[in-house]
Design a protein around this nucleic acid. Sequence first.
RNA 1: GCGCCUCUAGCUCAACGGCAGAGCAACGGACUCUUAAUCCGCAGGUUUCGGGUUCGAAUCCCGAGGGGCGCACCA
Length: 489
Amino acid sequence: MTVPADTDSPPGDAPDPGPVPQLEIPYRYEPSASAAGLHRDHDGLEAGQETDIEVTVAGRVMFRRDQGKVAFATLTDPTGSVQLFARKNTTAGFDDFVRTSLGDWVGARGRVMKTRMGELSVEVTDWVLLAEARRSFGDKWNGVSDVETRFRQREVDLWANEGTRATLLLRSRAVSFLRRRLEDRGFVEVETPLLHPIPGGALAKPFVTHHNALDVDLYLRIAPELYLKRLVIGGFEKVFEIGRVFRNEGISPRHNPEFTMLELYQAYADHTDIMALVEDLVSSLALHLLGTTTLTYQGRDLDLSPPWERRTMASLVSGALGTDLDVHTPPAVLAGHYRDVTGEDAPEAWGTGKLLQELYEKTAESGLWGPVFVVGFPAEVSPLARRDRGDPDLAERFEAIVAGRELCNAFSELVDPDDQRSRFLAQAAAHAAGDEEAMVLDEDYLRAMEHGLPPTGGLGIGIDRLVMLLADVANIREVIAFPTLRPER
RNA sequence: GCGCCUCUAGCUCAACGGCAGAGCAACGGACUCUUAAUCCGCAGGUUUCGGGUUCGAAUCCCGAGGGGCGCACCA
């Protein structure tokens, strides 16, 4: 409903006090029925049939069709839409009813009926304005499609585009399901610090902030990993955390600076146990939310039913390059392939492990669709993972590639504090040499490890990407309510 | 960070070197069963911003800003 323009603005430089508060807006309203509930209970009515059932409904006016002394409005709530039917001689406030704006929130009371045309309706006896939409939110037919508006003013997008509501609801249900599934399996949800004195647990550039009272720089966490493993050391055998992590890196359709990670750790388990867990979590999630484990992502089929294929990194690289390579191949040979593939010389500091991984990422990874577990990661690029029981140059680590991109990262956790120290030192050397993403030595964590970390399997899953998969959307912003954007100026 | 594309009314879009338009929304009116209701009327713009070329610029050029996509980085 539009308020008449204030034509009596104060003279001179006195600031405009603005409109008088809308005292007539009620402080509460109690809907007795939802749109979906009304359809569920009354869709069986005959066209033209009236009932004595009085209900109250509330929501937003999305369409209005006036016809002189009778008017129809489409009222939308989170469950769907139901029609309001008002007539001049039976609806209190009819004249104001036909002046409501599209987007106004209203509460209406009336009896359930079906119009002659067979549309389930609430025949309004009285109604109340619950909020005024001073700004229109788009074309009633085309909605709002401007990408910038959609992500900057998500409240508009949510009302204008049903798909947005569906996607964010799907996300909520996915997180809820994963929580339940993990709790059913005996996992305990915990919370660990977001502010880290030393950024750790992943290879990424952190955001830096400052604590005034302590006068220390702190980092927004890039991963909860190390704290979660300290909880395992402290006796929590199965822990998980679902929370935000922050990485000070580029923004892209697949990257938001803050994103949600599920990490879990299970004592006495190794990476093969975690693989089975991933298969179960992801396939059961799809089954729960979509009713099937075979889905389509961006026009391409994807079958999430277990078991998923296993491939070693060495075999993938060998296949892509047409020659047998692995982590024991002389570095000069790997560097030669790197030059052939990229046209550039590999940095001197790279060992065979780093070279092999780079070759994998440059040649084989983009061709994978999955789901597939890539195993056989070099130990050199896996500073927190335990060495392979059969080959100390490899780590018992895997990534799941699903729909062509990395969905999770997991390993048998490194449990030897001496080995961990030497891995940290290697990372610290790389950091000192200019690799901003290399880890720094974390004495707190090493001290914790010296108290004894049992054999443990660990997992990190990017929730945003998982939801992208299920919602079949190509941009990570679709699954984040308020994605990071450059501020408007 | 680099490259390409893009920005016109509240929304969705035309006009692509020659008077800046339509539909929807808004505003006024008609209509007692509509479904994007219909009909009549009215209003709405520094064409993102700043320069330049031109008799003339929304249109061509340069720069800035926002956004998109790709690359780089990463999950």
